[in-house]
């Protein structure tokens, strides 16, 4: 994963470099305590404000601390970005069920791209009986030599990035919200792990860090985003964020790139010429649990 410079303003980048220098100075001056973190970092972490309340400088300092923490914990140099949403962009996803063959390549690409704890997966592909629709018929643990198995079809599910997200409503401390580009994000440094959002989510899309994430240094993707795939602490909730570190730079999410059958179509819902718009306008699309009024930005369709 090459670390492209983020698309945001270069002034912020300069400020970050300056602060990096400052931080290096304090790191030398302060005695390492609290498991290798400088006392200054520990205090700054504890009192860190909500993401939406931080000034540009405070965000930059937080990003520096995240990078230092990764260095300390995994001895890996990561870059943590804060790429803002692009104007005029709202992301949507559509999955062609006819093309999905149940390989789960998307699942594994997601794990690697997003620095997921090796016991967590954002994407769940379930095996369904042809002719059946209800999710209680789903086989969550299919494990055949060869897929697709005869008489089966496959349904990949992940965070639906609801336009009316019940999880956001549930959070008592506004640690999760919908960004202007439609992505529902979590501030991992604000969440206090009550898990009420997990009970509110009808798609089982939220995952909790029950312990410290299981993540080896050589598995770490160093190209990270504050609201995305940066290494997570224990005790907080996380979820699919449409690969915010990639998509906000105009790239496709890792699951889309990994899919060998072309079943996944991701793009800007506001761009009338996008492929996703074509699908929505020309295919018989449906969404999961539409009766709940969550307005997912995640559709399914079949070839004719």
């Amino acid at each position: 994963m090459s670390s492209k410079p983020p698309a945001d303003d270069s002034a912020l980048q300069a400020r970050r470099r300056f602060l990096k220098g400052l931080a290096a100075g304090t790191a030398v001056a302060a005695t390492p305590a609290w498991g290798g973190a400088s006392l200054g970092d520990v205090f700054a972490d504890f009192f860190q404000k909500h993401y939406q309340r931080m000034t540009a400088e405070e965000v930059a300092a937080a990003l520096e601390r995240i990078e230092r923490k990764a260095k300390r914990r995994y001895d890996v140099a990561i870059e943590c970005k804060n790429t803002p949403p692009q104007p005029g962009v709202v992301y949507g996803y559509a999955i062609n069920i006819s093309k999905c063959r149940g390989y789960r390549d998307c699942v594994h690409a997601c794990v690697e791209e997003n620095n997921l704890s090796r016991d967590t997966q954002y994407i769940r592909v379930v095996e369904m009986e042809e002719g059946f629709e209800g999710l209680h018929h789903a086989n969550h643990y299919y494990d055949h030599e060869l897929v697709p198995a005869p008489g089966k079809y496959y349904l990949p599910m992940q965070c639906m990035q609801c336009d009316n997200p019940p999880c956001v409503k549930a959070c008592p401390i506004e640690a999760t919200w919908q960004e202007p580009d439609g992505i529902v994000v979590v501030d991992y440094d604000w969440c206090f792990g009550c898990r009420y959002c997990m009970t509110a989510c009808p798609y089982q899309a939220r995952h909790f860090n029950w312990g410290n994430p299981v993540l080896k240094p050589d598995e770490i993707n160093p190209d990270t985003h504050y609201l995305g795939n940066r290494p997570r602490p224990k005790g907080v909730v996380e979820k699919c964020h449409f690969c915010i570190q990639r998509t906000r730079e105009g790239r496709q999410p890792a699951c889309q790139e990994a899919c060998p059958t072309g079943a996944r179509i991701f793009g800007n819902l506001l761009d009338p010429h996008s492929e996703i718009r074509y699908v929505l306008e020309h295919k018989a699309v449906f969404r999961l649990k539409e009766d709940l009024g969550t307005e997912p930005k995640f559709w399914y369709f079949r070839d004719n």
């Binding site: 604000w190 898990r195 224990k234």
Partner: peptide, 19 residues
């Protein structure tokens, strides 16, 4: 039951955010 009881102050008025 909280994963991060150290952050319970995030609920406090003014310094925290309360939904």
């Amino acid at each position: 039951d909280l994963g991060r009881p150290d952050r319970i102050w995030h609920m406090l008025p003014f310094v925290g955010r309360f939904n």
